[in-house]
Write a protein that binds this DNA or RNA. Structure first.
Lengths: 121, 121
DNA sequence: TTAACATATGAACAATTGCTCATATGAAGA
DNA sequence: TCTTCATATGAGCAATTGTTCATATGTTAA
């Protein structure tokens, strides 16, 4: 165990960073959105819905997964208000519901498409 | 078990979405970046480095975590090239290394700060 | 009402994750 | 060289996660 916190700490820099540091609540909120997009299966679903709505069944085909698995993930996305749905008879159609998420995804797509993203790579 | 994939599927819509759908590799790459930011501890580290570099010890103070835990997470971020470091004697300073990530974070901060993000909320 | 079917949900399980604790590494000063 | 200290790393563990399988729900058509 070291005692760095009493000796080596650069108090001025630490305080500067701590000033206006987002609150825990906001941090958790942001992390939650990133978490929703952090699983390839879930990201695929969001990508599938980027340009048009789809029913659960079609999403399953697009994502090459069982409808049950898709349904479970859609629930996660629904809870986070990332998608919304409408029912048409037996069929339930899903759409993206969060402009922020759409922007995040588009930014990331630009990244992998143009690779102008990270100057160090 | 249902046979939706042979009956209810809207082939035209599915094909439209599948056309120009990102490849699996890109999807995993994007998900990886989101995953890096999906853990509140890791997100906090990135937020701490948003405006200036910090040593491991100071990050631990800012994030209120042990230096070991921080070091483990920094390794994850380093592996993903989200942060880079420079050594100055015994002290190692970390900086953000990915402009893309910086933009994603700033977008998310704007979101929680202005709440103009999701029109439905 | 009953059968068929799209979707949702619960339980259970394997896999992954983030932390702690102990120990290793590498640099500075005595 | 030896000690001190900042950081890094490995093993182990509890907690979380994503999937599967079985079953429930709710809608349509017969």
């Amino acid at each position: 165990m070291n005692i760095c916190s009493e000796k080596c700490i650069n108090e001025a820099k630490v305080n500067k960073t701590l000033k206006n540091f987002p609150d825990q609540e906001d941090i958790i909120g942001i992390a939650e959105i990133f978490k929703a997009l952090s699983d390839p299966s879930r990201l695929k679903i969001v990508l599938a819905l980027l340009k048009q709505e789809h029913c659960v069944c079609d999403i399953a085909v697009i994502c090459n997964q069982t409808e049950s698995a898709i349904s479970h993930q859609l629930r996660v996305l629904r809870t986070l208000r990332i998608v919304k749905n409408r029912r048409e008879g037996k069929i339930v159609y899903y759409t993206l519901n969060d402009d922020h998420v759409i922007s995040l995804i588009n930014m990331s797509l630009d990244h992998v498409k143009h690779e102008i993203f990270n100057t160090e790579r």
